[in-house]
Every structure is written in structure tokens, then in C-alpha cells.
Amino acid sequence: MTITRMSDLADPQIVQRLVLKVGSALLFGKGGVPHAAWMAGLVAEIAAARGRGQQVVLVSSGAIALGAARLGLPGGGRGSLADAQASAAVGQIALAGMWSQLLAEHGLIAAQLLLTLEDLEDRRRYLNAAATLGRLLNAGAIPVINENDSVATDEIRFGDNDRLAARVAQAANAQVVMLLSDVDGLYDRNPKEPGASLVPRITGVTPAIQAMASGDSGSGMGSGGMSSKLVAARIATRAGITLGIINGQHPDPVSRAITHDIGTLFLPTRSDRGRKAWLGGRQRMKGVLVVDGGCADALEHGKSLLASGIRAVEGSFRRGDPVGVRDEHGLALAQGLAEYSSIEVERIMGRRTEEHAVLLGYAPRSAVVHRDQLVLL
């Protein structure tokens, strides 16, 4: 069974696991005052989903905003990295306590997971996170997840919880991730413009779809905008996960979207699983391989990436590191795990396989990036 409309999201036969992502602006007003009634309503919706037999993961922003208010720091705690980390350290405890108390009122147990980018980029740590999520869900808990902003720096941050939610959906083996926003979904132009129309269903984040997005986060509290949601949609839909954008500014926002079919659904474009899904969702590459047209065509037909088609190497990487692949016009084609270091690739690029042994001084491997370790974008 496949998802075709918002009402399908309430069917436990179609959606066994659901990830909900909530931003700071929906949770807190000025001065870090919680929107307590709204939060209670959302928790009631989570309890209703559990009652239908669905498992739910909650990705919650808000720790920095809440902590900054309690510490009295300016700029919502985002004036400096030190302010953000300190605010998060205070806010994480308070935020988890709020969700735990609200869920307990429905007889539900909250569990907290704080993740950094590296926790989901590193394969071993990703599998550990996936195992923890699976055990918590099967035990009946509601995992409440946030980026670990108390220790994260720019180098190890997702930067917004939209992308984090998509990666968590992969790790949790969820069928759907829903992003609660300040608009009903993706519009064909700025929703403030006259005649703007909501796009209800989308298959594939094409350049035309990307052009519809705005990167602004209107609240001033969060870090994501519609552009970050489209990145999340690409991550999710490549892994066979449906991503929904709905308006969270109403009471009982999930029920409103499902009952009245209001929102945008990004439908899966394929169904990568396991290592392929993890590779396709990675955000940081250690280097880039620039390939010619013939190599690009071969990749599209499921072939491995051979040295003969490589025209340039960017960055410094070792064997096993993630690398991006793009064509000579700058179009991103794929990403995968390198079988050679950047120094070795520079020696053999553009050369045929039978020349590699002489150039390297040892028997060559079958490919620079094997098709089993390669994901098309």
C-alpha cells in the first residue's frame, strides 16, 4: 500500500512509524514562554496515533530558545556559539521535562536522544542510533530527539532540524516524516503573493520545485526555511519515505491536515535501504570527483566509477571516505565511498585500468567508487 493523500497518514496499515518535527516558533513565544495549550494538543494527537497502533518519533527544536530565556541571554541565545551552547545545555533539560510531563499525562514514556551530524554520518554510530530508536519504539516509548547543540559546532552540525528529521526517519525505518511549518505547505510562489497556489503532491525535487522555495525563516527563532525542507525531502524520498509539510500554527495541526487534506506531500522517488539510504542521506563529503560525459552516462546505467572517466579531483580524502561526484558543468550526480585516496586518484585519473598497476605500484582495485558503494542523486 502506498501513500497518496494526507488521510493515508492515519492508517496504521500504511504508516507504522511516523516522525513529527516541530520548530521553535511553534513551541515558544517571545521571552521563551511555552505555547502550553498547543503543546498539549500535539501530545494528544501523538497519543491518538499510538492508540491507532502507530509508533511516533518527535524531533523537537526549542532548546536554545528556552535556555536563552532562562539565562537571560540576548538574541534568543544565537548571538555567539558560546551563547548557543550554553542556552542548549540549560534548555535541553527543560524541554525534555516538558515533553516528558505532557506525554506522561497520556500514560506515555518519553526518551531523549541528542544527536550531532557525526552521529548519523559515521556508519557505526548511525547503526547504533538506529538500534536504539528501534528498541525504544518497540518498548512503547516516544523518542524525543534534538540536535546536541550544547557540544555541536559548525563543522558537526546539521544546522536545522528538518534535515535531522529526515535522517532520523531513515534510522528509525519510518514510512513518513511530517514537518510542522508556519505555512500550509509548498506554494508555487511566495505564499504572500496574490494567486499563490498550494502544491498538494510532488514527486521529485526538480529545479522547478526548488525555485518555488524561499530560504527565509520568518520567525527569527529557527534555523530552517522552505529550502531546508526541500533538502530534507530529497533525503527522505530517495529512501522510500514520504515527507509532508503541514501548517503547525493551528490547534491539533496533524488532525487538521489529515482530515481536510491540507499540506504538501513529497512522494518517494525510489526506495534505497540500508547502506544505500545512509549514503544518499549523507550531508558532508570529504572530496569531489569531476567526471566526463561518458562516465556520467555509465553511472546512470548502474556502472561503477572508473578512473578513466575522472577529469579532476577536489579535496583530500582517504580510502573509505565519502566523496561526491559531479559532471564538468557542476551538476551533482552521485555520492559514494572512495576505494582510493585522493593522492592515488590523481595518479590514475584519466588512465585505463591496465595502466594502474604501474602507476600505483600494486594491483589495482576494480573501481574508484564501486557501484555497490554509490548512490545516484
Rank of each mutant, 00 (worst) to 15 (best):
M1I: 11
T4W: 03
L9V: 14
D11E: 15
A25E: 05
L27Y: 06
G32D: 09
V33D: 15
M39C: 08
A40V: 09
A44H: 06
A44P: 01
I46R: 00
I46L: 10
A48T: 11
R50Q: 08
G51V: 11
G51Y: 05
Q54F: 01
Q54H: 02
V56H: 03
V57Q: 03
S61A: 04
S61I: 00
L71A: 13
G72I: 08
P74Y: 12
G76W: 08
A82H: 15
I93W: 10
I93T: 15
A96L: 12
A96D: 05
A96K: 09
Q101D: 05
A104G: 14
A110E: 05
A111I: 04
L117R: 14
R123K: 13
R125I: 06
Y126E: 02
Y126C: 01
Y126D: 02
L133C: 02
G134I: 01
L136D: 08
N138K: 11
I142M: 09
V144R: 02
I145H: 02
R157N: 06
F158P: 05
A169P: 06
A174L: 00
Q175Y: 04
M178H: 04
L180F: 04
D182A: 14
R189A: 13
P194T: 09
S197E: 12
T206W: 07
P207Q: 07
A208E: 15
A208F: 12
I209N: 10
S214Y: 03
G215I: 14
G215E: 13
D216W: 14
T237C: 07
R238K: 11
I246G: 03
A257V: 11
D261T: 14
T264N: 04
L265V: 12
F266H: 05
L267T: 03
P268Y: 01
G274H: 12
K276L: 10
A277H: 03
W278V: 00
L279W: 02
V290G: 01
A298L: 10
E300V: 15
G309A: 13
R318D: 15
R318Y: 11
R319W: 08
D327N: 14
S341A: 15
S342F: 13
I343C: 12
I343M: 13
E344P: 10
E346N: 15
R347Y: 05
I348D: 00
E355F: 00
H356S: 06
L359N: 05
A367G: 05
H370G: 11
